[in-house]
């Protein structure tokens, strides 16, 4: 099973230090956007909650 947040939680954006509100159903591996600076962030861990800048798009990314 994948790690999942159980309640609403606030985190700090690693790019601008702005406050980020995350829903209770957020999953590890999800991408969220910081509403302050617009950075795309990846949820890299749930317990404890960790965020990192999302990977940049590669040439063979897609569907």
């Amino acid at each position: 099973m994948i790690a999942q947040l159980s309640a609403k939680i606030t985190a700090e954006c690693p790019e601008c230090a702005g406050a980020l509100a995350l829903n209770g159903n957020t999953l590890k591996g999800e991408i969220v956007t910081c509403s302050d600076c617009g950075a795309e962030l990846e949820i890299t861990g749930i317990n404890p909650l960790t965020l990192d800048l999302a990977p940049q798009e590669e040439e063979d990314w897609g569907e």
């Binding site: 994948i2 999953l27 591996g29 999800e30 949820i43």
Partner: peptide
């Protein structure tokens, strides 16, 4: 790779 709308 990423949990997008679809994976979620």
């Amino acid at each position: 790779s990423r949990v997008r709308f679809e994976e979620k």
